[in-house]
Simulated scan of single mutants.
Amino acid sequence: MKIILILVLFNLQSGSEVITAEFDDDRACELAALRTFQGVTAEPDLRPLEPAGGATPIDGTVIARDSDGAEIGMYSCNPSRSDGQNG
């Protein structure tokens, strides 16, 4: 089963950047997300997304913060829905 990474880097000056990639397992996907955020801040704080005000959480979504607590992005690693499915 393939795992799809969907990652968004927040950038107020130039706009958010969306990155997608495919991996063979969850661990490889999570490590790729970590390395991406380490390019922004040396020690990103990665935690499950907790939606505001009674909104429904999106399973598997992680928010990344820098050392000051500012949100720098978010990502999710999920199984590809196209694996083994025809048309």
Rank of each mutant, 00 (worst) to 15 (best):
A32G: 02
S14E: 12
K2N: 12
L7D: 00
N78W: 04
I72H: 12
P51E: 10
N11Y: 02
P48T: 03
M1K: 10
P51Y: 03
A21D: 15
G84A: 10
G15L: 07
I19C: 08
C77E: 09
A52Y: 11
A55H: 06
E17M: 08
T61M: 14
I3Q: 14
A55P: 02
P51F: 03
D83V: 04
S67C: 08
L12N: 14
G39K: 01
A28M: 08
L46G: 05
Y75C: 03
E71K: 09
Y75P: 00
L12K: 15
F10K: 13
A42S: 14
T36I: 09
C77Q: 04
E30Y: 06
T36C: 12
S16H: 12
A64G: 13
P79E: 12
D45T: 11
R65D: 08
L7T: 04
G15M: 06
P44A: 07
L9M: 05
A21Q: 10
S14Q: 15
N11M: 07
F23M: 01
G15C: 11
R27Y: 14
D24W: 09
D26P: 04
T61N: 08
R47S: 15
L12Y: 04
I63E: 14
E30F: 02
F10Y: 13
L12F: 10
P44M: 04
D59R: 03
A32Q: 09
M1P: 03
E22G: 03
M1V: 00
F23S: 11
G73V: 06
K2H: 05
S82P: 00
A28H: 02
M1T: 00
G73D: 09
S82V: 09
M74H: 11
S14K: 12
Q13L: 15
N78Q: 10
A42C: 00
Q85G: 02
S80C: 10
A55E: 15
R81I: 08
M74V: 02
E17G: 06
I4R: 08
R65A: 15
G54F: 06
D68T: 14
T36L: 00
S80M: 05
V40D: 03
A55F: 05
G60V: 00
Q85W: 01
E22I: 05
V8M: 05
S82C: 01
S82Y: 02
D26R: 05
T61H: 10
E17R: 13
S82I: 06
N86R: 07
F10D: 13
D66V: 09
Q38K: 13
A55S: 14
P44R: 01
D25W: 05
P44L: 06
D66A: 13
S76W: 01
I3V: 13
K2V: 03
I3C: 01
I19A: 07
A52M: 11
R27K: 10
P57E: 04
P51V: 05
M1E: 09
